[in-house]
Design a protein around this nucleic acid. Structure first.
Lengths: 209, 209, 209, 209
DNA sequence: TATGAATGAGCCTTCATTCAT
DNA sequence: TATGAATGAAGGCTCATTCAT
């Protein structure tokens, strides 16, 4: 890899990190490109060589961070299975992943603020299906793998995922950040029950022999 | 009521109407106070005698419009019951109301854009519990009335309402506006099944005598 | 006149004067609104309360300065007639005015640069027919008056004026500023001969009795 | 000629063509060097190996295009003489050339806009006297040839040419592009009469034997 | 109460030019 | 010769808010 190539990668990383810090601490609206550039140690004009505008970098960050949440959750799940030498069924896996993500967001509320305030299903779907960074995972693949592994059939797997994601994400936002209408820990059981219900309704009766 | 008082009311109404039109047609961010004031026929400085800032007027509008959605749905429900001389159970009423609101939003997508893009549970809760205009209804009261009428007991009625509202509103947004992951009409049955499941899980076994 | 009104007028004048100085010394392109505002002692944003953009103020200045040139020339002509108690015919008046304007431009070459580099017939025509400042004259009226006074008839007075103005202005530019293809004083006799020829060709034979 | 030399020529041509297209379609000010380079298929830095800056390439283009106008007009004139086996006198030739140029500009108004908006006598004179491309003509030589051929003597041939060129070019601009003060076809007769008058005044009485 | 002129910080964006490769 | 990443000054413009009237 040439020196130049290397240098470019460094600048990109620097920009992404700086922007993420600023976005999470002061919000997207109150962060200017001038500030991002300056703190990243590059010229303002250089910013535009890497990103179209502020919303471009924001979207890429959301995709990347969302992807990380899923990646961590999936990794933790695999870990858990290995360690305990346990098999968990599909429903259990979904709940495990949701729980892991909720806990992570609960401990990193600035991240939650950033993601939620700027999320749309469009960006999110992109996060689920494309890799921004080289080590990102494609959760959709993981999701379908999970479905196949269990040998269950779902009526509309994508709609089901959509309902769950929307329910969980919008629920988390006010529950974690404002404890409204109650603390996330109080909400959790009801939330999980609902998720289980959603899964049940989408599950087709297994072909019996 | 003095002439003066009347004049004040007129200005307030003019401001609210103008702002609503501008917000829904061009978005909140691209609407300036100068534009609102000018089109409302008052001076820029006068705006500040009625509202703290742009977000103040925006929030009041969201509350008012949300309230209207519920009011219309409830009115339509009562109408339906009278006309058909039918009794509908609690679950049916909730579904009826949701359905009515979804249909209204589907036909008024600018309203949906405005409300969703600027919604937070905080504002929304306010909309449910307080009256902005004199003819607004307090949906929370209606909700508890509905519960009492049926003589059912719910474990955590507020959390239940919260889950339903969050699920429905975030689902509608991408489904109606972007048909993602599918058209609202395809989503509806799954959504209603989920709502029913949520209600079921919150319903406590009836005291039998 | 209120204090406010007075204040506004002062600011306008200050802006016009400052802009004119900057435009003539460093050119329009190299003059920024920031600089105009700052040197005029007002805030940058205030500039936009008085002018749409840089070209708006530039056009108004050109109109005003052009008007002044004509005004001075006409005044000088009247003066000359009075003093010498002489009658000058139409052709002589036109030549007098042109000569006066050329001399003024020759002595104020920065003005010539400014006007010529930014002139278009559109702006110029406006300068001839509308008053920017209260003391501006409307040269077109003066022109037609001159025609009537002499009792001569011209075939196409407007086209004639157009030809003369275009010829003189474009000729002056390189002749005065770059002495190309010769000094204005060497060009003058040829120029005047040409102007006379233009007038002659447009003059219709007088009705004889 | 080496391959390298050839390559250089190609790049130069590509740059000139691209710049001309961009200048005429969107104007000089709104065309950036980046855009020219990119569309010409070379790197931005390479531009500077061929031209000093944007105005350098612009001037060369104006010279070249002006030269082409004269070249075409002269060629057409010669053609006309041959075909009709006619002799045209000096005055007639000048009028023919002017007429031809006007018609060409009338049919190619983007070219007129480009040339006029960026013309100065300096650049123009260069166009008359120097060849930019190898097939350009030197109109000044042609002009003096025409004078000699006819055996007429002019008092100040250069000033005469200057007056004519300035008159025609500035007249065309607003007349063709804005039909101000009238359409070019209405202006033409007056313009030609004026040109004839200019020539007459510069013509010295022929030496009689 | 009502006005609207004035503010001036702040933002985004463009672009000619340089220079290490 | 050729590249194109980097620069950073510069510029135009918007807008919420204040305050004297």
């Amino acid at each position: 890899m040439g020196k130049l190539e290397n240098n470019k990668q460094q600048k990109l990383t620097s920009l992404l990190n700086t922007a993420f810090n600023l976005f999470t601490t002061q919000g997207v609206a109150k962060t200017s490109i001038a500030e991002i550039s300056q703190k990243a140690g590059i010229a303002k004009g250089t910013f535009y060589l890497y990103f179209k505008d502020k919303y471009d970098i924001r979207n890429r960050l959301i995709s990347h961070e969302s992807s990380k949440l899923f990646k961590n959750a999936v990794a933790s799940l695999e870990d858990y299975c290995k360690k305990n030498d346990k098999e968990i069924d599909f429903e259990g896996k979904i709940i495990f992943i949701i729980n892991h993500i909720i806990d992570e967001l609960n401990e990193n509320q600035t991240l939650l603020t950033f993601i939620s305030k700027n999320l749309s299903w469009g960006i999110f779907k992109e996060a689920l299906t494309t890799k921004v960074a080289s080590d990102d995972i494609n959760f959709k693949d993981v999701y379908y793998e999970m479905i196949n592994d269990e040998d269950i059939s779902l009526e509309e797997p994508e709609i089901m995922l959509f309902l769950i994601v929307e329910l969980v994400s919008s629920t988390c936002y006010s529950s974690i950040l404002y404890k409204e209408p109650a603390d996330i820990n109080k909400i959790k059981p009801y939330l999980f029950k609902t998720v289980r219900a959603i899964i049940k309704e989408h599950t087709l009766p297994q072909d019996s022999i």
